[in-house]
C-alpha cells in the first residue's frame, strides 16, 4: 500500500481559506491528505503550531496566506514571511526535511492553485516517507 502522508494546513481566513472553498465550488479534485485549520491571518500562526503538528504525527505542514500586498490586515503575511526562515532553520536543526513544511500564497480566486499546491506537496511528502519525529517518538515510547 502506498504511504498516505498526513498534512496539516494552516490557512488564513480571507484569502487562502476562501481560495480552498473556491476549489470546492469549482469541483476541482485534489489529494485528501491535507486537513485544513482556519486562522484569521497567517500572522497568527505561531511556530509552536507547526511544532505541535509535527509532534502529534503530521508528516508535513502547509501554511497559506494572502499574496504579499494583499493581506486583509495590511501586512500580516509579511510577519509570517519573516518568521518562516527562522522556523525553517529551527526545523533543520531538528533534522526535519525542508520539504515537510511549506509556505505558499493563495488568493481567494486561486482555487486551482490551491489544489495544485496540495497535490504537489502530497507527492513530495509521500516521497520523503513518514516523518522521522514520528518514528523517533515511537522508538522512544518503545524504549520506555
Amino acid at each position: 500500500m502506498t504511504f498516505e502522508p498526513k498534512i496539516v494546513g494552516f490557512l488564513c481566513n480571507w484569502c487562502s481559506y476562501t481560495g480552498a472553498d473556491l476549489a470546492g465550488t469549482s469541483r476541482i479534485h485534489y489529494a485528501a491528505n491535507v486537513r485544513i485549520i482556519r486562522v484569521m491571518c497567517s500572522a497568527r500562526i505561531d511556530p509552536t503550531f507547526v511544532l505541535k503538528a509535527l509532534h502529534d504525527g503530521a508528516d508535513g505542514v502547509l501554511i497559506c496566506g494572502c499574496h504579499p500586498g494583499d493581506c486583509h490586515y495590511s501586512e500580516g503575511n509579511y510577519k509570517m514571511m519573516r518568521r518562516y526562515p527562522l522556523l525553517k532553520a529551527l526545523l533543520a536543526d531538528y533534522g526535519i526535511e525542508k520539504d515537510r513544511v511549506r509556505l505558499e500564497w493563495v488568493s481567494a480566486s486561486e482555487g486551482q492553485r490551491f489544489a495544485d499546491i496540495v497535490n504537489d506537496m502530497t507527492e513530495r511528502v509521500r516521497a520523503l516517507g513518514p516523518s522521522s519525529i514520528k518514528t523517533a517518538l515511537a522508538t522512544d515510547m518503545a524504549e520506555r
Binding site: V39, R44, D46, P47, K52, A58, G76, K79
Partner: peptide
C-alpha cells in the same frame, strides 16, 4: 488578526476564539 498573539514572547496575549488551546485541540483532532 492575531499577529501580536503569535509574537508575544511571554504568551500573554490571547486571541479570543482562536486561542492556542483551541488550535492545539484542532491539531490533535485532524
Amino acid at each position: 488578526c492575531g499577529a501580536c498573539v503569535a509574537a508575544c514572547p511571554s504568551g500573554a496575549i490571547a486571541a479570543r476564539h482562536f486561542t492556542d488551546a483551541q488550535i492545539f485541540a484542532q491539531i490533535e483532532g485532524v
